[in-house]
Design a protein around this nucleic acid. Structure first.
Lengths: 200, 200
DNA sequence: TGACGACCTTACCGATCGGTAGGAAAATAC
DNA sequence: GTATTTTCCTACCGATCGGTAAGGTCGTCA
């Protein structure tokens, strides 16, 4: 069974928003990917902003789901974080568009997001912060500290993963072949080092 | 002595490119900040791409300078990294536009950068990688491992710093007042943890 | 005084932006 | 078999995009 036109449009839009950003992607460019006109897009979604919002909700739901799975996979918060970020690291290779959009929205879209005044990704952040605050500790992390920590992890993963194509181009593909492993180990180190510093 | 029009245009352009990205910032929007027309901009820089290139090279030079200062400030590579990232963390508050543009260029501008096929920031990355590879170790980092490490540090710093306005809006200003300290300590932890894992 | 160059203007250009209006065609419902 | 709804089209709209052409207003130097 073929995908609905609507879903195909969403996929094409996600790809283009990921590679060029909200302003850089045009309705015509998205519709062209399927050989349709931009009016077909507008028929399905009403406006560019609503199309983008729908993509963001899919991204957010997907990420919240991944965090919850990781929380179920282990009872130790450290292992929950490791499980999530490891899964996430893998997901970014298969779903690099999703990762790119997530990153943009977290650090890079203040102007646009302020305008529409909606934060689709807050549920996702809240889930992660909740795990971080459950880390065993003599003095548990307050919300802001937990955010600093969670953001540093997201940043570390994103930076490596999203920029991989770039680095491959700059430094050659061969050198990056073993990096999934390397990065995975790096993430565990970051999490364990932080947990250790809490002295739980 | 007032700044030259040219420099004022560069400053306005940097600000707008930082907050809206290459595609989202328009020549008219930049020129309007000074009450000039976009043709005044084009007179000084020729094209949007050349204007952006000039800003990128300022950013790159500034960052390379900061790394070199950090390298002179200490002989121990660990302390060089700590010095740089600590300086950088401070710089991002004063020069948040520069930081935002740097981030975009590192992770987010493949489409545009591929087109012009020029990497202004490679010298900056090379400087950092060189420090990372000088870390005392039984088996020194290869280039790719050094990159993973450097990127994780850049990612950690950027994520916290660039998104600070966002987080303040979401969670209140007060909670983030003490965070420069917190983040600074976090960065040192990350660097020392990695150095320790090398077993130098 | 006159020439020249730096600086910035108005007036355009063709292309593209997001979005609207109205209708053809095809599927669906009755 | 007819009515309705979904889907997608052509044809537009005003606004804006980056960029060009030509000219006017300066200060500088001869």
């Amino acid at each position: 069974m073929p995908l609905s036109t609507r879903q195909q449009l969403l996929d094409a839009a996600r790809h283009l928003f990921a590679s060029r950003g909200f302003y850089g992607a045009s309705l015509k460019g998205i519709a062209d990917e399927l050989g349709l006109t931009k009016q077909a897009l507008l028929h399905h979604f009403g406006s560019k902003e609503r199309l983008y919002a729908e993509i963001l909700s899919q991204v957010s739901d997907s990420m919240v789901g991944r965090v919850r799975l990781a929380r179920q996979a282990a009872s130790d918060p450290i292992e929950q974080l490791v499980a999530f970020f490891d899964d996430y690291l893998g997901a970014m290779n298969e779903e690099s568009d999703t990762a790119q959009i997530l990153m943009r929205e977290l650090v890079d879209n203040h102007a646009r997001a302020d305008k529409v005044n909606t934060w689709y990704l807050r549920p996702f952040l809240d889930e992660l912060v909740a795990i971080a605050r459950a880390l065993p500790s003599r003095s548990p992390l307050d919300e802001a500290e937990a955010f600093a920590f969670v953001y540093s992890l997201l940043g570390a993963v994103h930076y490596f993963s999203v920029s991989r194509p770039t680095l491959q181009k700059m430094y050659g593909r061969r050198r990056f072949a073993s990096h999934r492993r390397e990065m995975s180990a790096e993430i565990r180190r970051l999490i364990e080092a932080r947990a250790a510093s809490l002295g739980g």
